[in-house]
Design a protein around this nucleic acid. Structure first.
Lengths: 366, 366
DNA sequence: TTGTATGCGTTATCAC
DNA sequence: GTGATAACGCATACAA
């Protein structure tokens, strides 16, 4: 007999080449159970709802699978299902920074929880890394496309690339308000309402002159707070001129005990500091009041539009609001999941919880 | 013309059914570049060593891929028995726990850094998830096989599943000593040497009677410390009987100021506490000494086999050692990368750095 | 109720 | 140099 070269199976690769012992596949289970591979798939995936498969066959298959120690190959499952159940998480800085100060950790708590609840696993892409997705220029950002969709953290994500992905229909969600990019989905905290509420609280205590201490940053998170602050003033019928906002690139230097006394002499009774990565605004006000020998809330009221930095966590709890970081992370994942599923996204704003705290009270009698 | 039903392609599923814009595949890149899909694969995988492909074609393919934002499908890559540059990180509990106390964070810092440096992206698999894959029994652990290999954190990873993966030749590394599983690769801190060194330090200061305070846990990390402690005693020629180790399920309750005074009356001059998730041993000794009005290191010397819990981070720096968590994470990734590359793993033990601290001194004169 | 036939996106081999 | 083509393991529409 002559060999038939055409019948010789051509294999893409030798199994032995991988060095990996091959596990039992559905085909083997099928053989052992005396059924077809398709039947095995049906039984195992439990998709045959309407008694499509006889109980006896089902049992045989199940037994065979168990006896062989069958476990499905996730790669094959995902390939066949055209979904890899992976959500990307991209952060420009390391996802796990050494410096925990400005970490995304609290968001990730919510992200992980929600993703897990929805059956997604997370792929971490780090922008600053030398290898991985962030390595070779902004273009390597394309690597996130290996996931079903991607969550972006931090405000430094290149707009051009983001726009491109959105245009391509790749599901993208930005954590943090970002409206300048048409069509970009995002979730963010409602700083405006929350800041406004803090002012209302102060006004209801009797404060008439309130000053916002903020850093010199045009991030949405900052401008939102200022907007809410001013809106709060207006709603309370208070003056909101340029004097109401003190903007400094270095509050630690500019907000001195002297400056504080001057404000007070001018009739200011309450100060509101914004929260930033550095926490400098709050730290500065805090320190200046202490140095000036002013007690709080006796001599003056202080409020913080956010949470205090770790080093001041031990001090009296500041009046203000808590950014619901867990919930924000979860909301972002929910939105991303919606996009991946082809649904339209819903409400992007998450409310902040007002925190009464212990640093505000009625203004002192004069 | 008559339709030819036999020619109608039968598809396993409708692409449109997913509602998702599908990511570009090699086929589309090929079309755009005017070449075959196979050529695209060759060019992209850079496997065409011997100038098998013209520079011009190669450029066309590369451009096409870039312009389409092509990125390989990890599932398909793995199915075809190659690597997908993904390393799994599996933690039985949430990777980002709400309770930061016993968090893997410090390890992940090293893991992320090392993975990035080696060009790997990280996939986070969460075991504790309520929904998702983690819910469906230990079997769901198999989804990590989507990655090239996987790192396991925490001691609660099901042995049977781990063993299975190892047997299948799937690259697995366990973070933390785990020798009961034959063939399981792991990396861990050298608690034995480090603990021994702490004892040597105490002995060199003149202490003759030293007691180890430990919790009632049989984790390797605990037994290692005890072993090192006892070895240290022996090396210093000190008594190491059963009295040398105080084991309690609740040190906070059992290590009272009275108990402490009794020990001291018996001639004990130094106490060594183990570090655990809870930090209870150290906290108990610390509190008991304070309550008893004993100063440290004046009246007694204290040492901690690890780092203090966050709530005691502000106190005097304890003599002891630091677990090199970053380095451990990095070492784990290195080992995993070796396994993935088919090499054999190297040294699993990472040395801990001795920390002089300020809680030990010469024993008081009697 | 079960089996047959495809296709998912890649890699790898072999003719042309 | 390049283009068919065969797997990889699984899921699913459709025929039997």
């Amino acid at each position: 007999m002559v060999e038939q070269p055409s019948k010789r199976p051509r294999r893409g690769r030798t199994p032995a080449a991988t060095g990996r012992t091959s596990r039992p596949r559905q085909a083997e289970v099928a053989r052992l159970a005396g059924v077809s591979q398709a039947t095995v798939s049906l039984v195992l995936s439990d998709k045959a709802q309407g008694s499509a498969i006889s109980d006896e066959t089902r049992q045989r298959v199940l037994d065979a699978a168990r006896s062989l120690g069958y476990v499905p190959d996730p790669a094959a499952q995902r390939l066949a299902a055209v979904r890899n159940n992976l959500l990307g998480v991209y952060s420009f800085t390391a996802t796990f920074p050494t410096d925990v100060e400005h970490s995304y950790y609290p968001f990730l708590v919510g992200v992980e929880r929600e993703a897990a609840a929805r059956g997604y696993d997370l792929v971490l892409f780090t922008g600053s890394s030398s290898g991985g997705a962030g390595a070779a220029g902004p273009e390597a950002l394309n690597r996130v496309r290996l996931a079903d969709g991607c969550l972006f953290l931090g405000r430094h994500v290149p707009s051009a690339e983001l726009k491109r992905m959105v245009a391509d229909g790749f599901p993208v969600v930005h954590l943090g308000r970002r409206e300048e990019l048409e069509g970009l989905s995002w979730v963010g905290a409602d700083y405006v309402s929350a800041s406004s509420e803090v002012v209302r609280h102060l006004a209801s205590l009797g404060h008439r002159r309130i000053v916002l201490i903020r850093e010199d940053d045009d991030a949405p998170a900052s401008t939102d707070r200022q907007q809410g602050f001013l809106a709060g003033l207006e709603a309370a019928g208070l003056a909101g001129g340029p004097d109401a906002v003190f903007r400094s690139a270095d509050p630690g230097r500019d907000v001195t005990p002297d400056r504080l006394r001057r404000w007070i002499a001018e009739g200011v009774t309450a100060f509101v500091a914004e929260e930033t990565d550095t926490g400098n605004a709050w730290r500065a006000v805090h320190a200046a009041a202490a140095e000036a020998g002013l007690t709080c809330p006796g001599d003056l009221s202080l409020a913080l539009l956010g949470s205090p930095p770790p080093d001041l966590a031990g001090a009296a709890e500041p009046t203000g609001f808590d950014v619901p970081r867990h919930q924000l992370g979860a909301a972002a994942v929910r939105m991303l999941a919606s996009l991946v599923a082809g649904e339209t996204a819903d409400e992007p704003l998450v409310a902040c919880a007002f925190r009464p705290g212990a640093t505000t009270g009625s203004p002192p009698e004069r």
